[in-house]
Design a protein around this nucleic acid. Sequence first.
DNA 1: TTGTAGGCGTTATCAG
DNA 2: CTGATAACGCCTACAA
Lengths: 352, 352
Amino acid sequence: MANMKDIARIAEVSLGTVSHVLNGTAGVREPVRRRVLEVVRSIGYQPSQLARGLRRVQTNVIGMIIPDITNPFFPAVVRGAEDLAFSNGYRLILCNTDNDHSKELAHLNELRTFLPAGLIVIPSNFSDLTAQAQSYRAAGAGVVCIDRLPKGWDGDSVTANNQSGAYRATQHLIKMGHKRLAVITGPLHLTNAEERLNGFKQAVEEAGLELPPEYVQETTFDKQGGASKTKLLLRLIPPPTAISAGNDMIALGVLTAIREAGLRCPDEVSVMGFDDLDIAEITNPALSSVSQSGYQLGMTAARILLERIAGDSGPAKHVVIETSMKIRDSVAVPVLAASPRSARATKIKSKR
Amino acid sequence: MANMKDIARIAEVSLGTVSHVLNGTAGVREPVRRRVLEVVRSIGYQPSQLARGLRRVQTNVIGMIIPDITNPFFPAVVRGAEDLAFSNGYRLILCNTDNDHSKELAHLNELRTFLPAGLIVIPSNFSDLTAQAQSYRAAGAGVVCIDRLPKGWDGDSVTANNQSGAYRATQHLIKMGHKRLAVITGPLHLTNAEERLNGFKQAVEEAGLELPPEYVQETTFDKQGGASKTKLLLRLIPPPTAISAGNDMIALGVLTAIREAGLRCPDEVSVMGFDDLDIAEITNPALSSVSQSGYQLGMTAARILLERIAGDSGPAKHVVIETSMKIRDSVAVPVLAASPRSARATKIKSKR
DNA sequence: TTGTAGGCGTTATCAG
DNA sequence: CTGATAACGCCTACAA
């Protein structure tokens, strides 16, 4: 591969001049400049990112650390980040942690040796990112946290408005006439799961409804968790008439378990999801869900990072992305409430 | 960050000795070796990948180029590649091309400046990867092609057995009693789409069935394509009783269009997919599909690449991953065939 | 077995 | 405005 020395030789200038032309670090007389640029073009020269990074103590690499690209919510996040990063000349190194904080730590240590310009991280369970980020920032690299925050995080962050999303979704269930609402949350040590639960509780409390402790079930963010906890909920006496799921994967399990219990959704049990994945349109019945844009999450994180790289050293930014409701077919007026109140409930529904 | 000079100073040995201990390039007396290693551990030293790569003219980076991580088939491929690469000390730089060969070219040129150890590529439409790979191989980097092959590709490749998969899927439709089979293929300049069509045609021909040209529709690998072509097919006289889709995304569109046409699947039209994505279980009715493991595809590509990196310079390898059939609910005996042959058809079905 | 020195391709500093 | 030259951190002949 051609290097700057070759360019200098062919264009009959010194190495320093080539660098000046390429980086605009010093004015160079126009004819010389053109000659150099012409050689660069004709030879198809591209600077070695390795040498450049070594010298500048900073590469055009952004490390992106996520739990698992195979989880349907994350690809959009990665894509959003990659699009903005790429169009600004940055490249993404992708790392999966499987929510294992020791794997996360390994990635964090390894990535450092690339002298990345920054990091975009969806922290794993029990992440000690807060400590690690310190040393990255000391090296002049930005660190932006997405989707959920590790304990004590005080740096830049981009999250969805989980609380208000869950709050409004629960309000919707209540307005439909539900009185016995249960919730299946994700792992409560994850901030996003916790916030969603808080939103749920807030709506239930404001409506003056009871929330027996057995109606709050915690599990992992997946189908299996949703299915097993639903079986449990449906065996309670009385059973809930609506289940709010911590995310769409859980909701998928909820739908399956309802069907397997011989019940029907939404006739006997209503279900509300969170994330509005593509699959929400496909399920039977189509899943009502709180929509958050993963693409926007990733892109916003990249934007903040680019600002940091460009020199912004202001206080930590905390961007909160608003959610919206996607009403589909998995929520209906509960059977018990149907007769005396159907008129009113239906009216409310048709308003939306 | 600590460097080898620091280690040398603290351990009171020379720089060269540290390097020899770290790389095993020369025997070092045990006590000295231990002393060096102890310092390395205590200080948490990690070699700079940048300096190392610059010197060795090869980094521990693998470039992974795919059309779009947002497409549900690709995350598993990436994950399979990342898992094996990571456990062997390699890191993945992820690039999305959106099937745009100029974007692919840009990535290819950029990646070169990182001196990657290799490339794993799902080629874009009209990719000229064949030419580019030449120069990568000249630089000692392996290039493995996945899923589909660009024109004239003669290097390592990992693909699914598309032809046999489609062939057997079509045979299944025929055994169920279908006589009027249509196919909606992906873009035929993609080798995987072409192979699947060939498998379909082979089965239809062997059964001595007619295949009117209007029964073969080409479109993009997505829902919209599947839906619009299905509308067209259902308006034909006579309409097909079974539709074989080029992949599951197309099949999704087929299911939607059938429903919107007021028909029912599988009662009036049977549908067969390809890929067996997670969503195939969720659709209504659950989608019968040809299963191929994206994870295995990615992992196999990484394995071949690692072998190349380790020095294997044998002839090009062409690994073909076998597919399997996932029978669900979207295929049934056609209405017309139902009365006279239901006994036999049912018998065949129950055999599987 | 250990140490020394040159160079990978850049950028930045400083002298002309 | 242009050109030498010294790092950046590491590896590897080669010398001791």
